[in-house]
Structures are given as C-alpha cells and as structure tokens.
Nucleic acid binder design. Structure first.
Lengths: 206, 206
DNA sequence: TTATGATTCAAACGGTCGTTTGGTTTTACC
DNA sequence: GGTAAAACCAAACGACCGTTTGAATCATAA
C-alpha cells in the first residue's frame, strides 16, 4: 500500500484507512500516519487541507463506487416485473460483500465504516448524509413500495439498522470465523445470505 | 447524576459513563469530565489512579451485577430436566435487556459497552476478559452441551457475535425506533425476543 | 537552460492532553 | 479540641496533537 510507485496522496489514503481501522479517527495521529505512509508530516494538510477532510476522502474513495454498484443493481431489480424484498436487499448487500472481499484495502475499509457507524460523529454523519443519503432514499422508496403498510419513519429506522447490521457483519469485529474447510469467499457469501433472510423478516415484521 | 448528595467517586463515574457514551474513551477529556461531574481536575487521578483505570471501574460497576444475574439465571435453566437453547439464550440476554431499561445510567452504560465492542481496545479487552471471561466460558459450556457437533472455536465465535449483536440491539445506535403506541419496555422486550430467535437459529446452523 | 509552479521538508506554533505537585481544607476519631 | 488522615484544589509539567511557515527541491514547459 505504501510502496514507492504509489503517489503521495494514495499512500496517505492507504495508511489512513489502515490506522483509522485500527485506532479510530481521533486515535490515529497524523504523525504516526505520515510515518506509515513514508511522507512528510505536512503532506496531509498540503494535499487534503485538514485531517477532517482526509477522513472524508477516505470514505469518498470507496463509497463512490459502492453507491454506484448499489444503485445499478437496484435499477436492474426494479426493472423486473415482480421484484421481491430479497432481491432489493441483495442489491444493497452484495456490493458491500464484494468490498469486504477486496484484497487491496477494501476489507480494511469495511472496518473503518464500522468505526464510523459506532462513533456517531456529527461532522462525518453530515458528510455521509449529504453525499450518499440519496442512495438510502432510493432504497427506502423501493422498500416502501413493497411494504405500503409501514410509515416512512419506521421504514427509515429499519433500513438504518440493516445498514448497521451489514456493516458489522462484514467487518472483522468478532464475526463468526469461517470453518477451515470453507473459503473466505464462500463464508462471506453465506453471511450475506443469512443477513438477507434476517433483514427481510425484520422488514416484514408486524 | 451529578447532584451534590452523590459522592465524588459516584459523580465521576456518572459523568464518565455519560461522556464515554457520547464521545468515546479517547474523545472524552478529563477536563470536560471533571467539569461535568463538578469535581476538581485532579480528582480522577486521586480516586482512580488514572483515566485507564477509571474506564475499567465504569465497566466494573455495571458488569459485576450483570454477570451475576446471567450466571444465576443460567444456573436455574440448567437445573431443569431439559433446558432449551432458547432458555440459555434468554439467561444471557434478559439481564442485558433489564440493564438497557434501567433509568439511572444503565441505558447509557449499554452505549458505552457498544463503544467498547467497536473500539477493539486491547487493554480494555484484556480487563474484560480477565474479569468477566468466566461468564462467557460457562455459557459456552452450556451451549456446547446443546450443540455437540460444533467445535469449540466455532462455538466461541458464534457466542462472540451474539454478544455483539445483543450489545448493538440494546444500544441506541440506530436501533429500530419504537412505535408511538408501544412502550419502551415492550419495544425492548420484542427486540430481545427477535434476538433470541435469531441467535438460536445462528447457533443451530449447519 | 532557465523560469515557474508543484511538491517536499525540517522546524516551530499554539493548544490540549493526562498526570503530578504541594499546599489548604475537611473529616473522623481519641 | 487537638490531631492525623482523607479529600480537595490551583497551578504547573512534559508530552503529544493538528496545523502553519518558509525555504529547499523537483518537475515541466518555454
């Protein structure tokens, strides 16, 4: 991740992902971060303006593609004659599954996402809401069409908990360890299947 | 929580619980904490030795009772002729449910627990493992007797994820909001029921 | 080759952190 | 009421934080 053929910005983003996952956003200092990335201390402020903005860019680098994949899959599902709740859920969950299987930092990033979910950071939540809130809105509309008896507030809360459960299931935070005989890939896919069944039941509740 | 008829130690513990839940362990400074508790800055180091040890004591104050309740219920379940997986799970989950319903800080503490789960803090994990690891061991034994086909490692991981799911379900981290017509108590009890069903299925998997 | 803008760098800035100190006040007991 | 321990307090300590500065270095195009 920090090898010399990566640009300074890329080395910083890679080191940031690694250290944010391990120590949290406040716990990762720019001094340790720039040492890991083998760049000068001032490089973060030069290239990203501030530590806060570096945090934003760490998310942007991964979430742009994640959101695009989700919306693309959702579009395909909604084009079907009779889309099911499970198919919509899969459109939401499978891109995150792929990210968690990515070998070049994606798996680390999923842990950073889990951090963000737990930290309740207002500034970060605002950034995520402004930049990726429309994705949740589109899924909420799709779910809402399947579940007309649910009021909007209830629906948003349920989607929120699904996003949280997904994040934690994909992060390495004490998740079920795979059997030795089962590949990481298959293990994660099984986890996604369980999640989809669980979430579908949760959405249909009452 | 900080009213004058509480002792200095109790006011510090109360403020710590509040600020740890809101800002995390690193994010809560002793200066803000002692101001909230209306005690001198030096009081934390005088009464608790260090900030790290204060963190430990915040956990000890609640977990001693939680662990005792869990073990007591487990004992009662195992005394039955044919204990079920669901009953063992209830012995684990119901005390946490009661804590989350507690009006004098218990609900706040559950959010602190969720923080600890996400932070992966090695020092804190060691403290929790040394002081409350035996509780997980006893439950693991009880689950293991019900699920003899599971190897020990697999079993521990599954219990770990149940503890995590429980913690997050009981914390206010984006959890499903209750319907206006439903009391907080009943809402939480429903959540616990769902959790027990989900966890039982997860444990029985394969 | 030289001029120009982008990048890197060592050093320092002001601020906040957890902790320690040494003295003052309060408490509890003979 | 005197005394010793416990508790409290203002102030300061050294360490680390994110950020800024201004000069050195690099890349590139005239």
């Amino acid at each position: 991740m920090n090898s010399p053929h990566f640009s300074t910005k890329e080395r910083i983003l890679g080191a940031a992902e690694e250290l944010f996952a391990r120590n949290g956003f406040a716990g990762a200092s720019l001094r340790e971060l720039t040492a890991t990335a083998k760049v000068n201390l001032a490089a973060v402020n030069y290239h990203f303006g501030s530590k806060d903005n570096l945090v934003n860019e760490v998310f942007r680098r991964r979430l742009d593609e994640l959101s695009a994949q989700r919306l693309h899959l959702l579009q395909a599902v909604l084009a079907k004659p009779k889309p099911t709740l499970e198919e919509i859920l899969a459109a939401f969950i499978h891109p995150a599954l792929l990210l968690s299987l990515d070998k070049s930092g994606g798996a680390t990033f999923v842990r950073v996402l889990a951090r963000a979910y737990a930290e309740h950071n207002e500034r970060l939540r605002k950034f995520l809401s402004e930049n990726y809130g429309h994705v949740l809105k589109e899924f909420a509309a799709a779910f809402g069409a399947q579940l007309p008896h649910l009021d909007k507030e209830e629906l948003y809360w349920r989607i929120d908990i699904i996003a949280g459960a997904l994040t934690y299931a994909m992060a390495d935070f004490g998740v079920i360890k795979r059997r030795a005989a089962m590949s990481e890939k298959i293990h994660r896919e099984r986890a996604a299947e369980h999640l989809i069944r669980f979430a579908a039941a949760g959405l249909r509740a009452e």
